[in-house]
């Protein structure tokens, strides 16, 4: 299928992109409680890249016309109010329910979700290890959580072709992004950028979505963030925390790891904590069932 037709299908999908099926039940449960707690709301949004992107979109949108980007979910909840954020999460979740059967046909939703969360947690741990200001730690988490958001429209709007992409990547031991580009004429960094542009989710997050597979040559303003998310992504693919379709990730240049001051030994150190945090989120989500 031609690029323009694929592009159109992706665009149409992005307009009505649902929350992840993994989180939907919990979103509905949390939001339907009278007097939804801010803590639960924060938790449920923090584990869903689509919801997180939507809240960031809203708070930074022209509706508010605020000067300066807001990149913290805690602040967004305080500024917009629990009700507004709750309604937003709920409306995304309802769309998700409608489209549930067609969702995540190729990539498994649970695996994708674990991978996204793992990259978020690892990016944040990386930043903490490097002594990044506590005020912007959450930004590292969000950037990690969102980095692969472009795979959602590919996996759903172009589901048939995405089966082929994954098969080709497996067969030829290719990084997924190369197989995407060859077969679909478009890759998940590009579709991620389309989402970012459509939703105005903030320049920092756009940079990590755009460059997490080629951080080496990156020289823009978000270098720390781009390199952290790229390394976290590499780690999660290597250790198979979750699964985002990437069996043969490209080995990144050593300069990325030396810039961040980490190596594979550090990965062993954080493995338990990453797993513990993902489990914590899973327990929280499963309480809905």
């Amino acid at each position: 299928m031609g690029q323009s037709e694929n592009l159109q299908r992706v665009k149409t999908y992005i307009d009505r992109m649902p929350a992840l099926p993994v989180t939907v039940t919990k979103v509905v449960e949390v939001c339907n409680q009278p007097g939804t707690s801010a803590v639960d709301l924060n938790k449920v949004i923090s584990v869903d890249p689509v919801l997180m992107a939507r809240v960031m979109k809203l708070i930074n949108s022209a509706y508010y016309g605020l000067s300066g980007k807001i990149t913290s979910l805690v602040r967004a909840i305080i500024m917009l109010g629990v009700n507004t954020v709750k309604n937003l999460a709920l409306s995304s979740a309802v769309v998700g329910n409608l489209g549930k059967s067609g969702n995540f046909q190729t990539l498994n939703a649970q695996g994708f979700w674990r991978h996204s969360l793992g990259v978020g947690v690892t990016s944040k741990l990386l930043a903490r290890k490097r002594g990044v200001d506590a005020k912007i730690l959450e930004e590292y988490f969000i950037a990690g959580l969102l980095h692969d958001i472009g795979k959602i429209p590919l996996n759903n709007a172009l589901a048939d072709q995405y089966v082929e992409v994954m098969a080709a990547a497996d067969r030829e031991r290719l990084p997924l992004i190369k197989a995407e580009k060859r077969i679909l004429n478009i890759d998940h960094q590009e579709t991620g950028v389309m989402i970012g542009e459509a939703w105005n989710i903030g320049a920092n997050f756009m940079e990590t979505i755009r460059h997490h597979h080629d951080p080496e040559g990156y020289s823009g303003d978000s270098r720390d963030l781009v390199l952290s998310v790229s390394a976290a992504n590499y780690f999660m693919n290597l250790t198979e925390v979750g699964f985002s379709g990437e069996r043969y990730p490209r080995r990144m240049d050593d300069e990325v790891f030396s810039y961040l001051g980490v190596d594979m030994n550090w990965l062993d150190e954080i493995e338990d904590e990453v797993e513990a945090q993902i489990q914590k989120a899973e327990i929280f989500l499963k309480m809905a069932e």
Binding site: S72, R75, I78
Partner: peptide, 9 residues
């Protein structure tokens, strides 16, 4: 972290 960020916000 949330407690601190919330106070400040």
């Amino acid at each position: 972290e949330a407690a601190k960020e919330g106070e400040q916000a």
